[in-house]
Write a protein that binds this DNA or RNA. Structure first.
Lengths: 318, 318
DNA sequence: TGGCACTTGTCTACTTTTCGTCTAAAGATT
DNA sequence: AATCTTTAGACGAAAAGTAGACAAGTGCCA
């Protein structure tokens, strides 16, 4: 069995590391020592490329290469993911949340980023998502409704939190058999923070996420899901709570999607409980519940890999 | 054995490889060894041509011919398909752009991210921003207006490009004396791609960027700028081109901002040239022009640190 | 505070290997 | 006769190897 081997050129392309760095890491720290060809060229295996990716992410996350180069892969993974959640108890989520709100009201980009980063360090990935960003989204929504902060604050916070999540929730090494999840908010819903959180959580759970952002008509959400054979669709509904058009929009979505599971989350979901029930959508109350639900869907799908639903037209592209 | 056989000339035409290359691959690596006629001419079968095509694509993807020539066909296929992140033959921006559009229309998250990453590698930060993402934003806008792609595609592309820029552009070596720039799109303008590009470019030039996202009223943009003592405000205007409310919105912005420089970019800016002139805003035609303008503003500010400038457009941009 | 060692990414100089191209001469095909 | 193929070999640009220098950042210590 001739295992495929890759030249350093290919490794550079795949990792984004320079050949210099790859070589010096090998020389100084023995981070990845590939086999050699007869002519002394380095020949990397898939596993070695994977390890280089882990090292890249770990160093990018602030760890010194010299102190992590000899760690086994699973330790690296823990470093990159929520691993360092040794939960230094001295930073309670409320404190982090408060400081976030101060930074948001001051429109202070740097402060907000710093506080989030600090919170990540102390609370771990799960912690900051569930105990800071989640409540924060709720608070922002409330204050905005009361006119205490403006849409600018809301947009500002959304953008930075989104960036924060993007930067820190690195996509897992994508493999072909990952299930696909389409995430967005339906037409009329303009707050995308909830959707961003769902996307981050699902990504963390090993889903391939197609993030569509805010305010899309049902037909387009459904089109995206069908086009990519999505395993599920997740919507976030925060405000307004009394949109008369939304129930019809949800029904339309269901009729397009056939039997694909739909998950509806967010503060205002209770206000539409009737329709949600009607279209047989899930409504997890917390992020943990959402995670459980996603796991369940994936497991069910793995048990019955080919979806034999009567999906007549796969491409409703006009 | 009615197997069709082809002369080397035919193979050259079908594969695009030169006869020299085909022969040297055979001689050096035994990549494809065709049967011979009685007179010692090479006689290629369909399967051999197929294999040559695979080898061509794999080498084009960055793999060394010497290390792949002996792999079986299915391995080659895997190298080409699985390693799609490295299939960029030419480093020409048009090619990158095309592949981006294909990925966007397929809503293929991974492919789009890979192509962008690869493009960054080949074209550099400046290159990919100006020569890929810029034109891409324009193309997306055009196709959307023509109804060829949907808002979902536009949102999808915006989100991923945004994430890409966030991930790859200088995190922030923020220092206290960096000038502040407020970036967003005015109310009614929903395409945020242009604003994202401006934010990335400005960040790269050493500005502290406050990114507000799309669709904000003038009062809030101005509020954010004043609250943070912004040195300038940049707006992106792409569509619609005939919003009757927009001129008034821009005038309102100017009256709130006092003499703070305003920069208006984007495809539709020409449609509002009158107001832009009226409120003494800049309208750089390209990203380079924008960069120059930002540099000029910063220099002017450094020379006169306290903002007492009666700024009346120092740069008569075409 | 300055000095010193250590870390880490980048860069240069130089050699070897790889790989596509080219030439020349001879045989085959049209 | 003119054009193609084949073979063998030579050539040069690009890629990849090694060794070592260097600068910026960091931490420690007097």
């Amino acid at each position: 069995m001739t295992q495929a081997s890759y030249s350093i050129k290919v490794v550079v392309q795949q990792t984004g590391l320079s050949s210099h760095v790859i070589r010096i890491w090998e020389k100084r720290y023995g981070a990845v020592v590939p086999l050699r060809t007869n002519s002394n060229r380095r020949a990397y295996s898939d596993a070695e490329i994977e390890r280089l990716l882990l090292l890249r992410d770990a160093t990018h996350a602030g760890h010194a290469i010299g102190s992590i180069a000899s760690l086994p892969n699973d330790c690296l993974l823990r470093l990159i993911k929520g691993g360092s959640s040794s939960t230094l108890g001295d930073a309670c989520p409320e404190e982090v949340q408060n400081r976030c709100m101060v930074a948001i009201r001051a429109l202070n980009t740097r402060e907000l980023e710093d506080v989030l980063q600090l919170g990540l360090l102390h609370l771990g990935q799960h912690g900051i998502l569930e105990r800071v960003i989640g409540p924060l989204a709720k608070t922002i929504g409330d204050l905005w409704r009361e006119g205490i902060i403006t849409a600018a604050h809301e947009h500002f916070a959304s953008a930075i939190i989104r960036n924060f999540l993007v930067r820190n929730y690195k996509p897992f090494s994508q493999s072909a058999d990952m299930p696909t999840l389409v995430v967005g908010t339906p037409a009329g819903q303009l707050h995308e923070l909830g959707a961003v959180m769902v996307a981050a959580a699902a990504n963390d759970l090993g889903w391939r996420v197609i993030y569509l952002g805010a305010g899309l008509p049902a037909a387009e959400i459904a089109g995206a899901a069908l086009q990519n054979k999505a395993r599920a669709v997740a919507l976030s509904i925060v405000y307004p709570t009394d949109d008369p058009g939304l129930p019809e929009e949800l029904r339309r979505l269901r009729s397009h999607l056939g039997s694909i599971p739909v998950i509806v989350g967010g503060r205002a979901a209770v206000a539409y409980a009737g329709v949600i029930e009607e279209i047989k959508a899930d409504h997890p109350a917390t992020l943990s519940a959402l995670s459980k639900r996603l796991d369940a869907i994936r497991e069910a799908a793995e048990r019955a890999p080919i979806r034999a639903q009567g999906n007549s037209r796969t491409d409703p592209q006009s």
